[in-house]
Design a protein around this nucleic acid. Structure first.
Lengths: 280, 280
DNA sequence: AGGAACATGTCCGTTCAACGGACATCTTAG
DNA sequence: CTAAGATGTCCGTTGAACGGACATGTTCCT
């Protein structure tokens, strides 16, 4: 270790310097950089990236440079970084992203025209519902969600639909993560939630009153592919407590999208992915 | 080089084995894998990825596994890979992707309602126009482009608008790449193109007749941010030769979006990125 | 103005993660 | 049944990645 004459350069002990970093791959670090960007943190400086990922300046600098050169990141005049257009382009290739959206959009427009309320399309990702598309009107309730945003599975109508038609293991996983209380009316008891999901399966729709945010009432229905598997949930959010009146319209629209998926340009099984289960 | 006793394990000479691979980084390989996915190739098997990227099985296998574990790729039941939902989510953070889209969407809807024709929003990316959003009607001309797709700068109305308001260096770069002839009416002469672009700047709109595909006529107008920089092009495509009648409507709509960008939630300079220029 | 604190960018020697050849297994085709 | 191809796994070698150190630029306080 070049211990020629005493400790002239006085290197820090490598063991303490990189305590938990051993074994991490370059890719995991690069992905950690990308993962540092969220809806709340769309722009990050190099220093912020270092803090969020725990990487050293030099390392982050090099990786960020490579990512930027390729177009995965872009640099603002201010010097901060944002996700690059190249990644947007790539993301558009995901079958549950854009292709699903293209099929659903006309129907969502019709539903929006008929109800004049927020219309959302969400898919299952991990233990959240991911909003893939939404049409909102200035006239409707201000609502927190947005495209690319996430909804809790237990406290949103779309989430309940997705959870109701997923396997038992997702239910237990969701319960283990904790049924966070969003409002006084949020279902935080696993047994009650299970009953609610059963009711959702029986009726073919979920109706939720102020379980996620006050003054927001929503209805959701499942969208299925040609094999009958639930691939998405269509929901309407409004301020009216008589949301149950919208059930037929939402179910109708969801089935209309499902019919499109059956004959659609999307190949068999494309929407039916093994999420996050690489090998073994 | 372990030349102990003859050639028992008979390794191939490393120099011939990896001829041009020296110096490539892990990240460049991982990005090459992601880059192998295109609109035409949305699903790839491991073997296809190897062929497209030139990587060895073992390497590609490991990298793909890591990307899949993180969610950058997903695995279909068939065993093929597609771009993962996690990348879609990340891509949605790009300021010229979703945020621009959110502001533009209502106006595009209005323009679509008024014209009943395809409405497109495109941004500049490299030497192409990238379609960020579109609203199409079954009644309108069948048209090749799609969200996430690309249009040539010289042969589309949206492309001409973007090229007209970009720097001189982009013009020369586009000319060097070659003005590909799409139809008999495509402008392939640099001098003619320059005149067309000047006219586009003067009138504030581009009108294109069958320069990209037969029977497709289009009009485009620039969308600017608060600093006056052109960040996108709004276009209408139809089958009618009297497209010039739509010029006022398109210009109006484009200016309406521009006004939204001025006051919008998008921070100053966010849309004004240094594309693909990492450092120095 | 001085200088402390912080961010960004660059250099370079050490070392461990990545590479790729080889082999194993499984499926498909003839 | 063999051949061809795809996928998955193992392991020794080595060069790419790491991170400490330094240089420079910027901001903000005293």
């Amino acid at each position: 270790m070049a211990e020629a004459e005493g400790p002239p350069p006085q290197r820090k002990d490598p063991k303490t310097a990189n305590s938990g970093d051993r074994g991490r791959t370059v890719i995991s670090r690069a992905l950690a950089i990308l993962g540092a960007f969220t809806l709340e943190r769309r722009e990050l400086t190099l220093a912020q990236i270092c803090r969020l990922t725990g990487l050293r300046h030099a390392t982050a600098h090099r990786l960020v440079g490579e990512l930027t050169a390729w177009g995965a990141l872009e640099r603002l005049p201010s010097g901060a970084y944002v996700i690059g257009l190249r990644l947007w382009e790539l993301g558009a290739l995901n079958p549950r992203g854009l292709p699903l959206r293209v099929l659903a959009m006309p129907v969502m427009e019709d539903l929006h025209a008929a109800t004049r309320q927020h219309v959302q399309l969400a898919v299952l990702d991990g233990t959240d519902a991911l909003v893939v598309e939404r049409i909102s009107s200035a006239r409707a309730v201000p609502v927190v969600s947005q495209v690319g945003g996430r909804l809790p599975l237990h406290a949103s109508a779309a989430g309940q639909v997705l959870l109701a038609h997923a396997g038992e293991e997702l239910f237990t996983e969701a319960v283990q993560r904790g049924l966070a209380r969003c409002t006084p009316r949020t279902i935080t008891d696993p047994a009650t939630l299970r009953l609610t999901l059963a009711e959702c399966r029986r009726t073919g729709a979920a109706v939720v009153h102020e379980e996620m945010s006050p003054d927001a009432h929503s209805v959701a229905a499942p969208v299925t592919d040609s094999t009958g598997r639930v691939v998405a949930a269509l929901s309407v959010v409004c301020a009216d407590t008589r949301t149950h009146l919208l059930v037929p319209a939402v179910v109708l629209a969801a089935r209309s999208i499902s019919r499109g998926l059956g004959v659609g340009a999307i190949s068999q099984g494309t929407l039916n992915v093994h999420t996050h289960q690489p090998f073994e």
